[in-house]
Design a binder for these strands. Structure first.
Lengths: 211, 211
DNA sequence: TTGTCAATTGTCAGTGACTGTCACTAGCCT
DNA sequence: AGGCTAGTGACAGTCACTGACAATTGACAA
């Protein structure tokens, strides 16, 4: 296992430069008003090269997000088998928020990532892609849960249902965080905890009995 | 209240022709492989006219879906106030499936609609838009629920959370229906009922105790 | 019935995302 | 050093979509 050659390092630098410049332009001028040409002119590569690294203009907007998601999946895989499905997902998310900051900073400033996330939530075209990506992750999560519980995901619908409900709440969390004023990592962590606690009571037949 | 003039009727016919031809071409050759030019050539209008009726190629794919959703929202509004939030949504959906068939048939054959739905689920670009549209509807639903319960949707997160969980399950239902073999209205109704029944138990701390 | 107005449509020219092709450059490896 | 090949750039083309303006055609009053 030698360190990667010059060629490989060059590729990595080009890729990171494209991501960084793209996110800066997107968050500064807006996604739709930024053209791919502007990005590649700044980085000084051809448009063709951009599309060799990213299959679409949308994809580059999710490059960092992608990393965060992979981390969450790993965290879920590592939860002790004793935990029930819902607790495992909940704890995976909550423990994830604690360490995610450092991992992001290695690629782009944390603040740029947070602004990117808000941009995604507020740009219809990106929001759509974000949601589709989420459902793809749900499939992964459902399979992990099914495996933990020793179930067949194609027979027992409960893993998918639990994951769908869980993800729905997580999505609302992200939405509310984006709309709020406190745009910090701590804020999103607190919201996550609070909203997940509300889920079970929200399904009760009547709400008026207790708050 | 006079009947609409010739001009209005012509517009309606053009619109319906565009929808019908588009859905037929989409389901037959695939969404991506169908160009807007093919659609407008068949209907014999200019491309510019197409984009005056539909803001994008995607939008025409959701024209019928749009109608179905409006119906569901109306059904929810009509649920008796005595029902709890979850029961109201559940019953609105289930009662909706019973009458939706006729409403669809007035625009396109039911079978074409069902095939369109599957095409949406299996075409990434359309699935993304579908999911975004769903979240827009969730906002509407949350407001209705909040109103029914006398809550402020901006203060109490429970309406959004309940709707998010409910919608998550509905989405999985649609997905599973699309993948299955029984592509009938009855099948989707049965799945809906079955999956919603699974939601509350799926959130229980442990699953092994009971099925 | 006819002429005028306004709504609707078509034509045309352009932009921007994305793709296939092919020549060229530059690490890599012997 | 020199051949091999991964990666890049240049170029031409497709397709979704938009603005501007001209042409057409219902609607409606004189």
């Amino acid at each position: 296992m030698t360190l990667p050659g010059l060629r490989e390092r060059k590729k990595q630098r080009t890729r990171e430069a494209l991501i960084k410049v793209a996110l800066e332009l997107f968050t500064e001028h807006g996604y739709e008003r930024t053209t791919v040409d502007e990005i590649v002119d700044t980085v000084e590569v051809s448009q063709r090269t951009f599309f060799r690294y990213f299959s679409s203009k949308e994809e580059v907007a999710f490059a960092v997000q992608q990393m965060v998601e992979e981390r969450f999946v790993e965290a879920l895989r590592r939860r002790p088998p004793g935990e029930g499905p819902f607790d495992a997902m909940r704890n995976a998310v909550l423990s994830g928020w604690d360490t995610i900051g450092d991992a992001i900073t290695e690629v782009v400033p944390l603040e740029l990532y947070l602004r990117t996330f808000q941009m995604i939530e507020s740009t219809p075209a990106l929001l759509a892609v974000h949601l589709r990506r989420s459902t793809e992750m749900e499939e992964t999560l459902a399979r992990i849960i099914a495996e933990r519980e020793g179930l067949d995901v194609d027979v027992d619908p409960r893993p998918r249902i639990a994951v769908a409900a869980f993800s729905g709440v997580m999505r609302v969390t992200g939405q509310m965080w984006g709309r709020g004023t406190d745009q910090s990592l701590e804020a999103i962590r607190a919201l996550t905890e609070r909203y997940l606690d509300h889920l079970a009571p929200a399904l009760a037949p009547r709400w008026r009995d207790r708050t």
